[in-house]
Amino acid sequence: MSTVTGPDAAARHNTATAHTAPSQLSLIRTHTKAQLLEQLRIPVAVISSVVFPALVLMFFVVPQPAVTADPMASLESIAQLGVFGVMSAFLFNYGVGVAEDRANPWSSYVRSLPVGALPGILGRAVTGMLFAFMSLLPVLILGALLTSAPDAFTSGDLPWWRVPFAVAVWLLCGLPFLALGLFIGHLCTSKVAVAVTQVVFFPLAFAGGMMLPPLMFPEWLNTLSLFLPSRAARDLSVFALTGEGLHSTTVVCLLAWLLVLGAAALWAARRDQGRRFR
């Protein structure tokens, strides 16, 4: 029996490895599927993140005839609650989810595999985007059925392209909260992350004008909220859906928070990586 050695053997080995090594795309699909299944194993968490914004619409918007009878006021409320849903999905999916993964021995083992961090990061990002999008659907459906929002489009006052444009803006406006969730998840234990995420989420949502329109704020709170990422996300989303409500500082504020929170999330991830995998 002969044995092939030298360059030919190395070439055959490299070819065999290339055929057997999974691609980055297949790894991303695998991580995404695993993240989805992990989330679906906790139906209460999935249902709460998807249904909660719609419940807020039902309890706080629909009972107000002055709002539901006005197409533009209805669209403004829908835009606010769209950001509310995306913000909730990103903060809890990353803030609590990453903290739980850090405490999971299987996740620690997966992170030690020689496939890099990219598939896991993108898999969680796709999962977060999916649940954020799912939180938008009940708000849009109930808003169309129970308010006069569609009248703004059927009358010709607004073009229909603003609806898909607003969905894209909602998801983009969630990026600072994705980074904030990563920051919390890499710094806190799973139990602490739940409490910290809740403490951060509700004040940001209220001061950002997602539960009450900023028009109802006292002057000091309105001025303060203009410097918050939640208010910037809210105003940009309202503008995307209605063409109104954009301040001169909105985009700059949102980008500044994205840079700051993104840098904080990167620092926290590297700190955690250095402590547990050095």
Rank of each mutant, 00 (worst) to 15 (best):
M134T: 02
L145C: 08
P138G: 04
L226M: 10
V110D: 04
R111S: 10
V50F: 08
L224I: 01
A207I: 15
W220Y: 13
L221P: 06
M87C: 09
A179N: 00
L140P: 02
W160A: 15
L158D: 05
P218K: 07
L228A: 06
L37N: 14
S2F: 04
R234V: 13
W257K: 00
V51R: 02
V115H: 11
V115D: 02
V260P: 04
P43K: 01
A21I: 04
F277W: 00
P119Y: 03
L187G: 08
A132C: 07
W106F: 09
G208H: 12
G181Q: 03
G185R: 01
A263R: 12
G82S: 12
E76I: 02
R278E: 00
I78K: 03
S107E: 15
G116D: 09
L259P: 02
M1F: 03
T32S: 11
A89G: 11
V115N: 10
V192M: 13
L40M: 14
V50S: 08
A149L: 07
H19L: 11
G143F: 09
L37V: 05
P22A: 04
G116S: 06
L81Y: 05
Q39M: 11
L146A: 14
P229H: 11
P53N: 06
V167G: 02
F183E: 08
Q80T: 01
I47K: 01
Q64F: 08
V96Q: 10
I47V: 15
A79T: 03
S112L: 14
D151L: 11
P150N: 05
A193Q: 07
P213G: 02
A45M: 15
W220L: 10
L254H: 01
D70L: 02
M134F: 15
I121Y: 10
H19R: 14
Q273I: 08
P213R: 12
E219Y: 01
G274A: 11
L146K: 03
I42V: 12
